[in-house]
Amino acid sequence: MENVTDRTSNPFGMTPPCERAVPGYGDANADFHLVGDHPGVHGGVDTGIPFTGTPAAERLQAALAEVGLLRSTGDEPEVGDFFASYLHMCVPEDEEPSEADYVELERYFDAELRAITAHVLLPVGERATEHVLREYTAQLHKHELDMARLHGTEILGAGWLVVPVRDPNEWESGDSERLVAALAEILDRDYHRESDLGRFLAGEETYRVR
C-alpha cells in the first residue's frame, strides 16, 4: 500500500517522549532506508534532519548523491528514493542514551520502518547494524560485527536486503567508493524481487562479500 503524504520530515507524525527529536526524513514510499543510531552520533541536533550537520554526515551524503539517492546535499537535502531515520530519535541531553532509552524508543523506529516497507535497509554503524540483523534478518548469529568487513556487503533478510554501512566517522580511504559501487550494483538489478525472496530464504546462508 502506498503512503499518501507530501511531508518529507516526520511524514508519519511520530511524537516520541522527549523535548527535542530528529524524526525520520525522506520519501515515505522509499525503497532505500538509511538507519542510524541517534542524533548525537550521526547528526541533526541543530538541523532536525538525520545525517546532517557534521563532516561525517557530509561524507555519507556525498556517496548517496553519487548514486542518485539524494538529489542534493546539505542541511535539508532533497531526497530521491530514500528515507533516513534513527533507532533513538530523541536528542540526548547530557549523556549517551541508556539501553532502557533505546528500548523505549524502538517502537517509534519500528513503526516508521514497517510503514515505509523499503526493500533495502542501510544500517549505519555497529549498533544499528546489530539491531537490524537481529530484528529483521534472524542472521545476527552468523556474522561478526566487523564493520570494516561488512561495509557495502549484502545480507538477505526476511523481506529486506540489508547493506551495512561503516560509521562515516570511521571511514578510511576507499570506503566511500566501496559503498557507491555496492549501491550502484544494487540499483542496476531487480532488488525488489530479491528482497521479496528474502521472506522465504531468510533461514538460509545468503551472505555475500564482494
Rank of each mutant, 00 (worst) to 15 (best):
V162L: 12
L187S: 03
L145R: 10
A158M: 15
W171C: 04
L145W: 11
E144R: 14
R178Q: 10
E185H: 15
W171I: 07
H143V: 15
G174H: 06
E172Y: 02
K142S: 14
R178E: 09
D167F: 01
E144V: 12
E177L: 07
L150W: 03
S173Y: 09
E172S: 12
M147N: 09
R149K: 13
K142D: 12
S176C: 12
W160E: 00
A158I: 14
W160L: 03
T137L: 00
L150D: 07
E144F: 12
E154I: 05
E185P: 08
R149I: 05
R149C: 02
L156W: 00
D175H: 02
G174T: 10
I186D: 01
L183M: 06
V180H: 01
K142E: 13
I155P: 00
N169E: 14
L183C: 04
L140R: 14
L183I: 01
D167Y: 05
H141M: 13
E144C: 05
I186E: 01
L145S: 12
V163P: 04
D146N: 15
N169C: 06
E144Q: 11
P164L: 05
L150Q: 09
L183K: 00
G159S: 05
V165S: 06
V162Y: 02
W171V: 03
A181V: 06
